[in-house]
Write a protein that binds this DNA or RNA. Structure first.
Ligand SMILES: [Mn+2]
Ligand SMILES: [Mn+2]
Ligand SMILES: [Zn+2]
Ligand SMILES: [Zn+2]
Lengths: 147, 147
DNA sequence: GATACTCGCGATACCAAGTATCATTATGAT
DNA sequence: ATCATAATGATACTTGGTATCGCGAGTATC
């Protein structure tokens, strides 16, 4: 534990590692710090390139771990590619701009009961869902003419 | 046009090819027939293996074409893998069983206005959305005890 | 039916994202 | 300090898909 002041994400991750009986390794500090400094979504390979001292497989392994722990979430882009992003823990969705590609969190999903019902009509017991919303963010929209 | 009676999907696809100025090739008949005989979702590579006479790239190209034309849709599995499936044309979603892996169409999506509103709260102009619902189908559920 | 124009094909190589293997090393417990 | 082993990093492999390009099969015109 190189105690220096760290980004909260890094500290929480390390806490969770310790709590879960995982080892707190140099590679894990490095990956967590690299994730913490990302703005918006990122590809695992790109992150690996930012960390020449850490093996590629290790980067993938630890991103996966951070996803499982809820620190990072997956973002499905409109073209089918998958990205990672720092997660607001808990269930949420993404507003993904088809223009600039940025993804914004859509917190407070209230679809569960609606979907639960639709699924029940098909005699299907819903356990979860995955939703991404595509469109254009404010910045990428031509000035809206006053109505 | 080797006019023999064909599966409706194959005939519609050929019609759309002609209407769109695309050539009706042997490979396209073969891919369309192979798609038509799939039950549930399938991987593009698996389809290619069923068609030893057709090049792999051609199988991918034509599945893509069928997706663009709306004859085939993509299904995102719970583990992140992507599959293809014959599509009920038009916007719809999938009920995917985490147990047997089968996917059932959930027609008549009425989420648009709800999502439109949520997105608007974030100053985001929604243009589309992607939703998959996970759970357990009837067959994969332990007998429900009478309440 | 023959001609010509060109789209689409298949072979191949390539790419992107991720996983399996395994000898070596660093971590954390004692 | 010692030790057991979880984790790493190098490497190879897998899966899913795309770029290239010479060649052959579709289609339109005659
Ligand atoms: Mn998120
Ligand atoms: Mn479908
Ligand atoms: Zn934007
Ligand atoms: Zn099932």
């Amino acid at each position: 534990m190189i105690a220096k002041k760290q980004h909260p994400l890094v500290e929480s991750f390390v806490d969770r590692l310790e709590a879960g009986g995982h080892r707190v390794t140099g590679a894990r500090w490095a990956v967590a710090r690299a994730v913490a400094r990302q703005r918006g979504h990122f590809a695992a390979d790109a992150l690996a390139q930012e960390l020449p001292g850490v093996g590629r497989a290790t980067v993938f392994r630890n991103i996966k771990l951070m996803v499982e722990m809820g620190f990072v979430c997956r973002v499905l882009l409109g073209d089918g590619r998958l990205r990672y992003q720092i997660s607001h823990r808990g269930h949420h969705h993404h507003l993904i701009c088809s223009d600039c590609g940025r993804s914004e969190d859509l917190l407070g999903c209230d679809l569960d009961s609606i979907l639960q019902d639709r699924a029940a009509d098909h005699d299907f017991a819903m356990e979860g869902h995955w939703l991404e919303v595509y469109g254009r963010c404010r910045a990428c929209r031509p000035q809206e003419a006053a109505a």
